[in-house]
């Protein structure tokens, strides 16, 4: 006899998680891969990503259910068990983050924080026509196509601190792109393994089973 009740879909991520997730995803993609330099758009997208991160972490303190930071399965033993499951091609149902997924989120949030803060150090002014901006950013706006000279410019006008900030900014940004690629691969793998299209849970209110 078939189940009398329609097998219902699973609850997806809440709207705030989805909004902040895609804001950050888009920001990493655009700022990391398309707009490499300190253009005004780059600065604005950076602010949007930073506020999405702050909002997500704040929401993590208040949110009910799997969006709560306290609900994230961060115990190392669980991550190891999850890794063993993946190797053995087994799958355990989890309503929110998977153990490795939770660590991925923490890693991306941390690198995003580093990228955003160093970005603020490098160029905090979202309105460059203002009279408070730094001489160094002026220079950058005129010469942003000239990658080779950047390090020298920073050294000349921004000092060693700015140079360190810039190196950190670029390293963290590269790390974010790598983590984002790993994250997409991980979601694909888990979806394949579980038969649940996990990406749908990040787009729609609920995720349905794609196969039994």
């Amino acid at each position: 006899m078939p189940a009398p009740v329609r097998p219902g879909g699973r609850r997806g991520w809440d709207p705030l998680v989805r909004l902040t997730h895609w804001t950050i995803a888009l920001a990493i993609l655009v700022n990391g891969a398309l707009l490499r330099d300190g253009t005004v758009a780059h600065v604005w997208i950076g602010y949007a990503a930073l506020s999405a991160l702050i909002l997500r972490l704040l929401w993590g303190l208040i949110a009910p259910g799997p969006a709560a930071l306290a609900e994230m399965p961060l115990a190392p033993s669980r991550a190891l068990a999850h890794l063993r499951d993946l190797v053995a091609w087994r799958w355990h149902d989890s309503p929110g983050h998977t153990p490795l997924g939770a660590w991925m989120a923490v890693a991306i949030w941390s690198l995003l924080a580093v990228t955003a803060v160093t970005g603020l150090v490098l160029e905090a002014d979202p309105f460059p026509d203002d009279d408070t901006h730094h001489a160094w950013s002026d220079y950058r706006y005129d010469h942003d196509d000239d990658e080779e000279d950047e390090d020298d410019d920073a050294h000349e006008t921004g000092g060693a601190g700015a140079e360190v900030a810039e190196d950190l900014h670029e390293a963290a940004a590269t790390g974010l792109l790598i983590l984002a690629a790993l994250h997409v691969a991980g979601v694909g793998l888990e979806s394949r393994l579980s038969g649940v299209n996990l990406a749908k849970g990040m787009i729609f209110n609920r995720r349905e089973r794609t196969k039994r």
């Binding site: 705030l16 702050i54 909002l55």
Partner: peptide, 24 residues
Amino acid sequence: DLRRASLLAAALALQTLAAVFFIG
């Protein structure tokens, strides 16, 4: 309620962006 939650999420995103700019 679902629509309300989506609207609240959008409002919160704008509020936070404004707050980050303002605090800066």
